[in-house]
Design a protein around this nucleic acid. Structure first.
Lengths: 374, 374
DNA sequence: TTGTAAGCGTTATCAA
DNA sequence: TTGATAACGCTTACAA
């Protein structure tokens, strides 16, 4: 990041690092004194206004910086400049691999563009979200990327009205019009649903967390119903609250049993990774280690355990989502004043053994057939 | 955190948020003017020196703050006070659930004690670690918690010599004596190894990443060898580099085959979660969906997929590790000047189906028998 | 009980 | 090509 590169490379550090005096870190004043010049010149050197400095002075400054192991104080810089290169990144749940992957994209882009992401992990607590959002304004971040569960309009308005750009990830927030990056849910769900129908499953069950205000859940559910309708397939939706799943899982069993009794082949479609995992664990408890022989499972969100379990999944372009979010922010920070944008990236259906049993009744050996290039 | 609580609650925000003038955030000066008083009084109010202020003035200040939606600038505060309540948290790999769990402990403790964790994710890149460590000094964090892969002595010396306390997590760094929190590796490995022997496995294979400078890996491997020696059991160690695992996995197959040929029951002991996952995927490729019938697998690091796969694992007290790390830091920041401490927390063996086949040749149905309370 | 003024470590404005 | 000097938004003596 520029924070790192706009001052020269100090990687060749000394083993012992002399400070100004005592343990204090050296300040620009210390460096100026050491180099026998004024603070202004040091500042110029720091900011790459290199052409202005005489060869001699520059050398003295370099030496002084090296000797004192000087590192400019970003806080002070930010205070003076009015921008501290900090970007807030609010994440609902780092336990979800999706979040971690998006984060990696965000981090990479931040480094490339010279920002430092201030990562806030709400750990699924709406309260934490609120607190963190306030903290972010307190640290005067220049922009925020938000992937949250319960943020209400008002909380984000504090930013948008204050001229702090906001980019939403995965889901929109009612009442907030701003840039947004996420999966093309309709297309992804349609493709996955069609795959299930193509494979000969004739009873589909879409499982999703309460859609309350989480737009991506609603969109996926809607797309599922539209697709089965247009395909003339049979299916239904089941809502499960992961924090209290017992009754919904009972209902799940009932529906599966009913379908089986009717001689149907049933496929479960989990709306995201956490749901899929919960369902898989439940199925394993019910049907034993070879649960996949009894019920097919497909999910949005690919993950390592999905590969291990041989579960078909829609891989989201997570890294790209993170990258784009930062890019959007960067453009806004650069002064771009276009209307709010919506960037919907395509998913990729990764077909595995769990949904491959077109004709027979026994599942085939796990074969890793990828629908598109990796 | 105190950052949040030392100024009164502004949760009852207005829908429209009037700023000082134009889009600028209000400053303490704006508030002072609005309240018809001086900055000092505002500062006092902000810092809870409430007893000093007259009832009337306090009311005016409250109103002004509310009206202007004022939030004190942490950067400026930090600059003046010499401490910004920022704690650096360097993580080697957020893809590893272990890291995320530790992070959750860190976050909780930070909030409780009034710190803001500045999370740095190296994503397994040693270069990133270096850069982040420099960044952290640049943002003048008050302390750092480090869980890293390649940090060398010199990088951390910048902190320790500068009086910035450092707490290491999971592993030590050669040449650095400082507080450290992690798993009690010898005890955990001994217990797990004994379990395998008790279950009748008579050929154990310990699988670990290159131990290069990662103390926890070395300790685990050593404990494994000591335990089998003291138990008179047969076993060996296999080193696998996850970035390039092919040859090591070939070697793994060879050893397993040899043991099987010799009529032995073999158990694999993965030194951590990522290794376990890689091995599990490999076994599944080789033996098919019911790979657990052929080889037993146990690992340090419990995870969601471990439960799904029914794999026995040593659950680390991750949350507690994070909490303690912050506590250690907090004590140092409070001026505690004791010698470096080492806090080794006990793991918990979670026995699942993968290692339960004491006598028979076929694995039993998955039963979730937990060795200790959850 | 309240306010003035200096200063934290920078950058920006203006002269020299 | 250089360097005083005044902010940035806040806290903290020190006065009043």
């Amino acid at each position: 990041m520029t924070n790192m590169s706009d001052d020269p490379d100090h990687s060749k550090q000394l083993a012992r690092l002399p400070r100004a005096f005592d343990g204090r870190r050296a300040t620009i004043t210390d460096v100026a004194r050491e180099a026998g010049t004024g603070k202004t010149s040091i500042s110029r050197y720091l900011n790459g206004e290199t052409g202005v400095l005489s060869r001699d002075l520059r050398a003295r400054i370099e030496a002084a910086i090296e000797k004192l192991d000087y590192r400019p104080n970003q806080m002070a810089r930010g205070l003076k400049r009015g921008r501290n290169r900090l970007i807030g990144m609010l994440l609902a749940d780092l336990t979800n691999p999706y979040s971690v992957e998006v984060l990696q994209g965000v981090e990479a882009a931040c480094h490339a563009l010279g920002y430092m992401p201030l990562i806030c992990h709400a750990a699924n607590e709406v309260d934490m979200e609120r607190r963190y959002l306030q903290l972010l304004t307190t640290y005067r971040v220049e922009g925020v990327i938000v992937n949250a569960l319960g943020v209400k309009e008002e909380l984000l308005q504090g930013f948008t009205q204050g001229g702090i750009p906001v980019v939403l990830v995965d889901r929109t927030v009612e009442g907030i019009v701003t840039d947004m990056v996420g999966l093309d849910n309709p297309a992804a769900v349609a493709q996955a649903t069609r795959h299930l129908v193509d494979q000969g499953f004739d009873e589909l069950l879409f499982i999703v967390q309460p859609v309350t205000h989480v737009s991506s859940r609603r969109l996926r559910e809607a797309a599922f119903r539209e697709t089965i309708a247009s395909l003339g397939a049979s299916g239904s939706t089941l809502v499960v609250d992961l924090a209290n799943a017992a009754s919904a899982l009972g209902e799940l069993d009932a529906r599966v049993d009913a379908a089986h009794a009717a001689g149907k082949r049933v496929a479960l479609f989990a709306a995201n990774g956490p749901v899929a995992l919960r369902v898989a664990v439940h199925l394993k408890e019910r049907y034993g280690a070879d649960w996949q022989a009894s019920v097919a499972l497909l999910a949005i969100d690919d993950s390592e355990w999905a590969e291990l379990a041989g579960m078909t999944a829609v891989r989201q372009p997570t890294y790209e989502i993170g990258r784009r979010a930062v890019e959007f922010l960067h453009e806004r920070l650069g002064g771009a004043a276009m209307p709010a944008r919506e960037c919907l990236l395509p998913g990729e259906l990764v077909v595995r053994a769990s949904t491959q049993r077109a004709t027979g009744d026994t599942p085939p050996q796990a074969t890793h057939e990828i629908s598109q290039g990796k």
